[in-house]
């Protein structure tokens, strides 16, 4: 394993080293980053099967736009962790701040603690599994992908969502506009079982409720104006 120390090198060097290693391929695929001290934009824009462990807590946009790589944060992550992820896996051992997995198009984001507000905002295909709770406006305008919450969801879950699938084990403080509870069918149990297993999440599919779009906002209608 190669070590990059942010107390010794600057952010540009760190990211350039990881980005080059990711695209170049080669045998050295395991990296660790020490002394992150809440720094922003760590391990962003990776495109290759690299495995990066960040030992400590990060600032904004850790693992932003990730492709293929596995990034583990052995601490908590600041706003926008794994934003616009395309593929690969990002695991946050602690909590994640707002906008976790925002606009993500693929891959798997696992948050072992809580995620705060706007988790999965505008998600476009990413799978997100949160072991704890998520804050308000999570999955706002979510288009595709799956959000799984083992704990509770805050206010306005799934507001204005399109086709993303939401599963919550605990309570939901309130549903956003156009978000409704839906029936759990066998295909949803299967989907959930797979995702929980891949995330290593201690929960069973039967414990969850499913939420999705009522599809009333899909075409403008004045009778729905209060929801706009």
């Amino acid at each position: 394993m190669q070590t990059l120390d942010l107390a010794q090198s600057d952010l540009r060097t760190l990211n350039a080293t990881l980005q080059t290693a990711a695209t170049a391929g080669g045998n050295e695929t395991a990296w660790e980053v020490v002394n992150p001290r809440g720094a922003h934009a760590l391990a962003v824009g990776l495109d290759g099967p690299l495995s990066v462990t960040v030992r400590g807590s990060t600032g904004y946009y850790c693992a932003g736009m990730n492709k293929q790589a596995t990034v583990q944060v052995a601490g908590s992550a600041g706003p926008g962790v794994a934003e616009n992820m395309m593929s690969g896996t990002v695991v946050v051992e602690g909590d994640a701040s707002q906008y976790a997995g925002a606009t993500g198009r693929g891959g798997l984001l696992v948050v072992k603690g809580n995620a705060s507000s706007r988790c999965g905002i505008s998600m476009k295909g990413i799978d997100i599994v949160v072991f704890g709770n998520v804050g308000h406006m999570s999955a706002f305008m979510a288009q595709a992908g799956t959000l799984v919450v083992l704990g509770d969801a805050g206010e306005a879950l799934g507001d204005s969502l399109y086709e993303a699938r939401l599963f919550v084990r605990g309570s939901v403080r309130s549903l956003g506009a156009d978000c409704v509870e839906k029936e759990m069918r066998p295909e949803h149990h299967a989907l959930l079982a797979d995702l929980l297993e891949r995330a290593g999440a201690p929960a069973a599919p039967e414990e969850f409720r499913r939420y999705g779009s009522a599809r009333r906002l899909y075409n403008f209608d004045i009778d729905n104006a209060s929801a706009y």
Binding site: H40, A41, V44, Y60, Y61
Partner: peptide, 9 residues
Amino acid sequence: IKILELREI
């Protein structure tokens, strides 16, 4: 910070 991320990428 967003601009920093875009530049780093």
